[in-house]
Amino acid sequence: MAGTKMASQVPVIVFSEECMKPGTSSWAEACKVMVQALQDHGCFIVDHPNAPLGLHDSVFSVTEDLFDLPAETKIKNTNYKRPLGVVGTTPGSPLIEALTIDGAEKLQECEKFTSLMWPSGNDHFCKAVHDYGKFIAELEKVVFKMVCENYGVEKCYDPYIDLISYLLRFLKYKKPEGVEASVNPTEHTDKSFLSYLHQNNIRGLEVRTKDGEWFTFEPSASNFMVMAGDACAAWSNGRIKACDHRVAVTEESQVRYSLGAFSYVTGMIETPKEFIDEAHPQQCKPFNHIDLLSHHDCSDNLIKSSCGVLAN
């Protein structure tokens, strides 16, 4: 299959220059594979061989610098949207720490976060995370354009891109010696529209495939796991599946760093009429995505409880 290859049951789409050109056969094929994967598993893997040189090494290097800061500095990171700033430990689970930049694709937001962590400045950190935020934003443009084209809802593309922003979450996992449990957190879906997970050389992310099996995402500098969130599932009227996933840290005393970029709409999300027919009655009323992000309910019925399901 040109431009694609299979990794277990989760498709890998190689974002070659040819694949990223609308109108080419590689583009059309990638659209088809991507949407089928989102419907089956809620996720797919992007192998991006043309990612900027050094992006992976640079952003993970500054991530380590960030977590090396004193606790009294890191605790200053707060955010009213979920996921929130610093995360502590839970019994029987690996040590987890997390910090978040809201709007990592915007230079001013990266500068604001950098000055909070390093009052005297840290241009290297600021540039690395801003470059990463811009890269994810460009990646989402391609992914969403492919999704819209495949479903025949191209009209949704521009309004969505105009309203999209990104939460960039830095994560540090460590499984202490002698701790038996290895999975944290329990399986869940994200409240984002789309999520982009990138990790260092330590395994951790697992996604549940359509047959109920757990698939382990292998670390690679060019690989990004793209997962549909609850908001995307609602937008597509349930045609796209929100991806069930978890993190399993099994190597004692090994530190796993991960980056999660979560896209969200700064406004209302409404299901396009093209997704609604007799076989697919409208599931959800229009809802405010930021309200969904701020919702504390983590149950499977989050969308139902936050935006209301229409009667069939």
Rank of each mutant, 00 (worst) to 15 (best):
I136F: 09
H296I: 07
V129N: 08
A261C: 14
F113L: 10
K106E: 15
V86W: 11
W235G: 07
A221C: 05
L293K: 08
R82E: 14
C110L: 06
V247T: 02
C148R: 04
T216D: 11
C126R: 15
G88Y: 10
K210G: 09
F135W: 13
V87E: 15
E270G: 01
V12G: 03
P52Q: 00
P22M: 07
A261Q: 12
V142D: 14
Y160T: 12
T89Q: 08
E29P: 02
Q254K: 14
A231E: 11
Y132K: 10
V12M: 09
K210H: 10
D230G: 05
P119K: 00
P83T: 02
G121F: 03
N184D: 11
S26V: 00
R208Y: 13
D131Y: 11
D102G: 05
P219C: 00
P11I: 00
L53P: 12
E177I: 02
T63C: 11
K191Y: 15
Q283W: 15
D244K: 07
Y257E: 02
K32C: 02
I45V: 06
V142I: 12
G121K: 05
L310S: 07
F15W: 11
T266Y: 11
E138D: 15
N50W: 10
I45F: 04
H41C: 00
L107C: 07
L139G: 12
T89P: 14
E187A: 04
C19Y: 00
G229H: 08
T89A: 05
G260N: 05
H245G: 04
V147T: 09
K81R: 09
L292F: 13
G54T: 03
T114A: 11
T24S: 12
S222M: 10
D297T: 06
E154D: 15
T24Y: 12
S192V: 02
L99D: 13
D47M: 05
H56S: 04
P83W: 04
K241M: 04
R239W: 15
K5Y: 14
L197E: 09
P91M: 00
Y151K: 02
T4M: 06
V179K: 02
Y151G: 02
P176G: 01
V153Q: 09
R82S: 10
K127Q: 15
L293H: 07
M1E: 14
S305Q: 12
P70N: 03
N200E: 02
A2E: 12
K76Q: 07
Y151I: 00
A221I: 06
R239G: 11
Q108S: 14
L116A: 05
A228H: 06
P70Q: 03
S26T: 00
G54M: 01
Q199H: 05
S165R: 13
M6K: 08
K21D: 11
M225S: 06
Y257C: 01
N77D: 09
L167K: 07
I13R: 01
I13M: 07
F287C: 01
E111A: 13
S195D: 03
S222E: 12
A30M: 00
M227W: 06
A104S: 13
P94F: 04
N184V: 00
K134S: 10
F125S: 05
K174D: 11
L292D: 15
E270P: 11
S61W: 03
V183E: 09
T89K: 10
R208F: 05
K172Y: 12
A248V: 04
H41K: 00
K32P: 04
H41Y: 01
N79Q: 04
N77F: 00
D291K: 14
I101M: 10
C19M: 03
Q39L: 04
E206I: 02
N200S: 08
V265I: 12
F67W: 06
